[in-house]
């Protein structure tokens, strides 16, 4: 079963389908975040031991008025993740090519 699933994912013919599925997931997760902001569910969701969460602390473990401003913006972490990833790849590879990357036998 594992082999079948892995073969399906690895098969180049299915890459289009997988990509579409991935994009839909992205949309769903952003919608979830927007919904969370609109309805502002501070309560723990119904998952194991959800009920035990401390009553006088918010889910972050500190008072709500200290919240980071980014937490208030819809889809903030989507943008942060995307831009962060792009910048990281470009900067690291850039610095690498300009300076850090040497031939493999550099120290020999």
């Amino acid at each position: 079963m594992i082999k079948k699933a892995v073969d399906y994912i690895g098969n180049p013919e299915n890459s289009g389908k997988l990509r579409r599925f991935f994009y839909i997931t992205l949309i769903v997760i952003v919608l979830l975040d927007i919904g969370e902001h609109l309805f502002h569910t501070e309560h723990p969701v119904d998952l194991p031991q959800g009920e035990h969460a401390s009553a006088n602390l918010s889910h972050k473990g500190h008072a709500a008025d200290e919240e980071f401003i980014g937490e208030e913006i819809w889809g903030f972490w989507s943008v942060y993740g995307f831009i962060g990833c792009i910048i990281m790849i470009i900067v690291c590879k850039g610095v690498g090519h300009a300076w850090l990357m040497k031939k493999e036998n550099y120290y020999d």
């Binding site: 997931t25 992205l26 972490w77 989507s78 943008v79 993740g81 995307f82």
Partner: peptide, 10 residues
């Protein structure tokens, strides 16, 4: 999920 999946997009 947003952080990770959008990293995936990048």
């Amino acid at each position: 999920m947003q952080l990770l999946l959008f990293t995936g997009l990048g």
